[in-house]
Design a protein around this nucleic acid. Structure first.
Length: 285
RNA sequence: GCUGAGGUGGCGGAGUGGACAAUCGCAACAGUCUGUAAAACUGUCGCCCUACCGGGCUACCCAGGUUCGAAUCCUGGCCUCAGCA
């Protein structure tokens, strides 16, 4: 089975830097699994780190505002990984978008059902209760499988109805990888400091990147408010920092339930050595 | 110092005699997740018990008072802000 190294974890833990280092050691190339960094430009806003000699796939694949979703990601990532294998290199999947990572490494059956824009438009105008009723009617199993939170989530209900109404698919078999999951984390207070520092460092560049009409990525609203003169730099920094921190917490909520991740605390001295040893024992087997 | 406005839960801000442990927003905490995942959504959110059905206690600047009953009315005090000085 083909080996695939996965480096995941919340934002601002140094995933990319670590992955680049590992790529140099093991003749690898990176594949980004980040739902923000797929957009062209916006380097400072989305925190893209780059390397002169290690390729990073799936940065800058689509214009901001264009439709992009997990399904696109999975297709692109699969072909990137194949490409890397063909050249006998090690793909290193690095990113904080847990859903992307999951979809790529496991089977997600409904992923092949494409969106139905006209249906969505109609359902979008429907009330929550009518969405609930419709789903119960056309796919009661799906409805029962949803928890209370999703049953009250219009977006999820609409997608479930969309899937239920589509023709049934036989899910294609996904490539199976021999994946090693490495998670990078640190205590929340330290993570907060790192986020604060990173955001401050990127502020000036990020202000130049944002413009009206951009998708509402983290930081866009406060940065625009600042550049329009509606808030001070400190206010904008505070808001951007806060949203990044909240995002990091959400990421951790996702990753916490995933039991195959080996976690490393990046605030501890010598964690890199531990990672290297861990990867080494996996890679050489 | 005078005049006006006001002091409500971590913050903002409703409430102006009973249905108020106090609408709502933010923050916080926990969580959901199968084509928007940066998103969307759920629950909790004074303290203490609880078989989660409830029960007890302390609360709306402070001190008194009126009232069967006050965050809401009255008196005094303290403090804040705006304008005048």
């Amino acid at each position: 089975m083909n080996k695939l190294l996965v480096v995941c974890g919340p934002t601002a833990t140094g995933k990319t830097a670590l992955a680049i280092m590992l790529a140099k050691q093991w003749n690898g190339e990176l594949v980004s699994a980040d739902s923000r960094q797929i957009y062209k430009g916006l380097d400072a806003l989305t925190g893209k780190d780059r390397s002169d000699d290690i390729p990073i796939w799936l940065y800058d694949v689509v214009e901001p505002g264009m439709a992009f979703s997990v399904a696109h990601f999975v297709r692109l990532a699969k072909s990137s990984i194949e490409n890397i294998y063909k050249r006998n290199k090690l793909p290193i999947l690095v990113g904080g978008t847990g859903f992307y990572l999951q979809a790529l490494t496991t089977t997600v059956d409904s992923l092949m059902v494409p969106p139905n824009p006209s249906l969505r438009m109609v359902l979008h105008a429907a009330s929550l209760s009518s969405l609930q009723e419709e789903l119960q009617l056309i796919d009661s199993l799906r409805w029962k499988a949803m928890n209370e939170s999703d049953q009250k989530n219009p977006r999820r209900l609409i997608r479930a109805i969309e899937v239920a109404r589509s023709a049934k698919y036989v899910p294609p078999t996904m490539p199976q990888y021999d994946a090693l999951w490495i998670g990078l984390t640190s205590p929340l207070s330290i993570l907060e400091q790192r986020i604060r520092k990173r955001v401050r460092e990127r502020f000036v560049k990020a202000v130049r990147e944002v413009r009206d009409g951009l998708p509402s990525l983290l930081g866009v609203a406060p940065l625009l408010s600042y550049s329009h003169g509606n808030s001070t730099k400190e206010e904008a920094l505070a808001k951007w920092t806060l949203s990044e921190l909240q995002y990091a917490k959400r990421q951790m909520t996702w990753f916490r339930k995933q039991k195959n991740i080996r976690w490393f605390d990046v605030s501890k001295e010598g964690y890199i050595g531990l990672v290297e040893a861990y990867v080494s024992s996996w890679y050489t087997h």
